[in-house]
């Protein structure tokens, strides 16, 4: 029995290793994308692979600040797409100059489906009986949120500082929180589980999503091809998902 158990463990381990090393003939491209871009990049990945069958794209997502930390610690990736330019600037030393803004985004107030609390403007976020949440400092959406609120002269009483946009979305779609400022594309991606309230253009800021090839990349041609794809053929998809394309 013990011998058999040992064999099973060995087989499982070998299987696990084998799984990691198949598709040896396709060259692999590691892309790090901010979590607000994750859904879009999954779609773009398959489109890019269809056009470039010899390249296997792997997308890793996380908060921009966390991905930047990984890059600073030598994570072996080829491409980095951040939710804001200031995070990109922080890791400038690890980028093949220069980064390019491949998509833009607007901000919206995410609320429960049908907007039961009747939130119409940024000023409404000051109501005491409303649970408004945002992300912690360092996360791009927090920077954009602060900027928008400052422009509108609004001081919101935040009840939680989530780790990333995903945390804000989860808590609003689960009904725990009433409102939070997120990207328009996040509202679209939730479908019927949340509604979006537009922010007037004079108060709104345009979020700019930059992308760059990393100096650590050993497949810079493939990486450049992926970046070019986002700025070319991929633009239709981005627009369908609610992004702006510069």
């Amino acid at each position: 029995m013990r011998v058999r158990a040992g064999i099973i463990v060995a087989v499982l381990m070998a299987f696990g290793v084998a799984c990691g090393s198949n598709d040896a003939e396709r060259s692999r491209l590691d892309v790090m994308a901010a979590s607000s871009l994750a859904t879009a990049f999954e779609i773009l990945e398959s489109e890019f692979e269809a056009a470039n069958p010899d390249i296997d794209v792997r997308v890793t997502s996380g908060s921009s600040s966390n991905l930047a930390l990984q890059i600073e610690n030598g994570a072996p990736a080829d491409v980095f797409a951040s939710a804001d330019e200031s995070t990109m600037t922080k890791v400038a030393g690890f980028l093949v100059p220069d980064y390019r803004v491949f998509a833009t985004n607007e901000l919206q107030i995410m609320v429960a489906p049908g907007n039961p609390k009747n939130i119409r403007s940024l000023a409404d976020l000051q109501a005491d009986d409303l649970i408004v949440i945002t992300a912690q400092e360092g996360v791009p959406i927090r920077g954009y949120t602060d900027e928008v609120l400052t422009r509108a002269g609004v001081v919101a009483n935040f009840r939680s500082f989530e780790a990333n946009v995903g945390g804000i979305v989860t808590k609003i779609t689960n009904g725990a929180a009433d409102a939070g400022i997120v990207y328009r594309t996040d509202v679209i991606a939730t479908g019927s589980r949340a509604s979006g309230v537009d922010i007037p253009a004079e108060q709104n800021v345009v979020a700019r999503h930059p992308i760059a090839v990393l100096t650590s990349s050993t497949r810079r041609d493939d990486a450049a091809a992926f970046v070019a794809f986002l700025q070319g053929l991929g633009r239709d998809t981005l627009r369908e998902l609610g992004f702006g394309t510069p």
Partner: peptide
Amino acid sequence: TITFAGNFPGTTQTMSIATYLALDTDA
């Protein structure tokens, strides 16, 4: 905790959450 309770200093920001979040901002 962070998924269910959120993150607010003094109310829901525990040591573990503070540690994780600080990793991004102040290693």
